[in-house]
Structure formats: C-alpha cells, structure tokens
Write a protein that binds this DNA or RNA. Structure first.
Lengths: 124, 124
DNA sequence: TTTCTTGCAAAGGGTTTGCAAAATA
DNA sequence: TATTTTGCAAACCCTTTGCAAGAAA
C-alpha cells in the first residue's frame, strides 16, 4: 500500500459521488502534485479488483469509479449525464429468479435506471 | 433509409446475439464490401437513437449492440465474457420502486447479471 | 535485498469527425 | 433540387504498457 494508493482510496470516499479516472487524478493531484495518470489508472484497477472500490460501466458509456461499497443501484440522467445513487430494493430476489431461467451460475447483478434529474426536469 | 442502413439493421437480427461495432462491420461487409467502419458507427448510433436496436454498456466495458427489442435482461460470464439473454421478470415493478426513493423521473432501466456460463462451469 | 510501484512518454484500441462525392427524398 | 448519407482518412479521446528509477516489504 503506497502513499499514492492510499490517497487515491481516500479521495474516493465521497458519499454518492462517482468519478471518472481523470476526476480522481485531478483530486489526487491536489495532494500529490507529481502523481501520474498511469498510476491512477493502475491503482483504480487494483482497488476495484480487491473490492475496495467499484468500477461502473453505465449507459452513458463512461467508466466511473464508486467508493461506496454498500448495496445500491444507480440512476443516470439521460439529458445531462448526472449519476445518483438509488437505495437498493427491496426488489425481491432478482438473482434467484434469474438463476431459474438461465444456465449461468449467477454471482451478482447490477441495476441501472435512467431518467431525468431534478434540474433537467425544470428545464423542460 | 439507405441501403447501408437497411443491411446493418438486417444483419443485427440474430436472436440472442450481441455484436460489437466491428462484428457488425464484418458481417455487413460480406454483403456490402465497400462500406466503411465510420458508416457502421454512424448508423448504429442512429438506429439506437430511433429505437430500432439497443446499445448495451455491460460490465466488461464492451459496447454491444442488440437487435432484440423485446424486454429482456442480460447475463455476462465473468470468465469468458459471453453474454446471454435472460427473460425479463416478473421482478415486480422496479421502476415504480425506484421512483419512490429517487428525485429523478424514471424512464427505464437495465439489469445485468454476472455469473459463470455453462462451458466455464465445466472447466472449474 | 527482493519485489512491487512509480513517473514518464509512447503506443494502443475504439470511436468520432471533416470533407467532397454520391445517394436519397 | 435540397437534404442526407457515404467512404476515406485523420483526429481524438481514454486507457494501457515498457522502461528505468524509486519506494515498500
């Protein structure tokens, strides 16, 4: 656990926020001005592999990193791209249901809603 | 509706299959050898915007295009990346539930399961 | 010391875009 | 004819990677 990795992890602890790799880079650079973007990418990959953060691939096509590990879903604004958390369920046991109709051994799931955020609703 | 667009749409009609832009390009090229990759990208974008196909951003980070318009979900193998359809629900009314806890006006949702496909289960 | 990680810069892969020519409505 | 779309190629992200120097275990 290097200094860089620790700071990256700390800077990801923003409840309800989801950052691109470059946003993480910008934040971390305020504390470690010499860190490189490559290091940020490498550590985001490692941290998500060991389960300290979550990598999201949402509909907008952007890769986002989420420091929040509690079970929750996401909603993305189709107008401005803003992503917010949606508290999880209770949505029944989705995985059990899927396991009955699929030949896959189900290990997990991701649920993403799309809609229009409060600000964009005003603009309509 | 140009010839290129029509052929692209036709080549996407493979039940249960999900293609990358390049796979679409390869398929279409068998019928229209001079089509360019740019044209494929432009038409996939247009077709998904007008709702004739669906653009998927699954966990693997890959962008896939799906010609199947019936309501269904997807499951992705975490070992080999294979993507299969999962019949939808009945999973209750996910969007109504999300609308109660979110300030967004909910318009839709995508649900992706991850697991291990039949073939990869054998290898374990 | 041995192994892992860093910063740098270059390479890589997928996607988008400007343009003039061609096709469509 | 007016508008849209095409093929081509270059440009454009974003992300990954090779390397030698540096830090961590």
């Amino acid at each position: 656990m290097t200094r860089q990795r620790r700071v990256i992890l700390e800077e990801m602890q923003i409840p309800g926020k989801h950052l691109t790799a470059d946003e993480v880079y910008q934040r971390v650079r305020r504390r470690l001005p010499n860190i490189s973007l490559g290091t940020v990418y490498r550590n985001l990959e490692i941290l998500s592999r060991i389960g300290r953060i979550k990598k999201l691939h949402l509909g907008g096509g952007r890769k986002l990193y989420d420091g929040g590990l509690h079970l929750h879903y996401h909603v993305r604004c189709v107008k401005c791209g803003k992503v917010s958390d949606v508290p999880a369920g209770p949505f029944g046991d989705l995985e059990t249901a899927a396991g009955k109709t699929s030949e896959f051994k189900i290990l997990g799931h991701q649920l993403e809603f799309e809609g229009i955020c409060k600000e964009c609703q005003k603009d309509e």
